[in-house]
Amino acid sequence: MTMAVVAGRAYPLGLSNVDTDQIIGSDWLKTISKVGLGEGAFAALRDNGVTVFDDERYKGSEILVAGANFGCGSSREHAAWAIVDTGIRVVIAPSFSDIFSSNAFKNGILTAVVDEAAISPLMAVASADGEDGLLKVDLIDQIIETPDGQRRPFNIDPFRRECLIEGLDEIALTRTEDPAISAHEARVSLVEPWLAGAV
C-alpha cells in the first residue's frame, strides 16, 4: 500500500508512555496470523477509563494523536497489526520507541514525529467537533495541516518515507544486494571465523 496524504478526524489520545502491552494484550500474542487483532486493540486503555476509541465521533479515524514515547515496551509487532486492523494509518507523537516505529513502518503505518509543543494544539483540533476537527497529514511535504491554516512539520526517516510513498518490498530490495552480503560473509569467515558459524 502506498501513502501520500491521509486526512480526516483523529483519535485525541494524548497519553505518554503508551506501552505495547496497552496497545495489544499478551493473550493476543498467541495468534499465528496478522489479521483480526483490531478487536483487542487498546483493550487495557479502554478498561482503564480511556474513552476515545469507543467515542462515535472518532470511529474509523485513520489518525491517532499521542504523547511521548508511544509504543514503548515489548517488541510485539502485534501492536502494529492491531493498529492497522483498526484502520489507523498515521500516529502522531513527540517520540516513539525505536522498535515500535520500525514495526509500524513495516506495516505501512506512518509514525510522524512532531515537536512536544505541537501536541496540545493538535489535541485541541482533534477534539474539536465537525470541520474544525479535521487533520491533513501530507507525507510528500512532511506537513500536518489543521483547519485554522497552521502547517506543522513532522520528521520521518528518509528511507522509510520513500518506502511508504512507493510501497517498496524491503526483502526484495535487500536481495538485490546479495553480492555485497556474500562478500561480507566471506570477509568474516577469513578474519573472524568464530562468528561465521554458531550451531
Binding site: 517488541s75 522498535i99 544486494e177 546479495d178 552480503i181
Partner: peptide, 16 residues
C-alpha cells in the same frame, strides 16, 4: 537488539 516479526523475516531471508 529486539526486532519485530517483519524484521525477523528479513533476517531469516537475508541475514541483514
Amino acid at each position: 537488539f529486539g526486532i519485530g516479526t517483519t524484521e525477523v523475516e528479513h533476517v531469516l531471508a537475508t541475514q541483514t
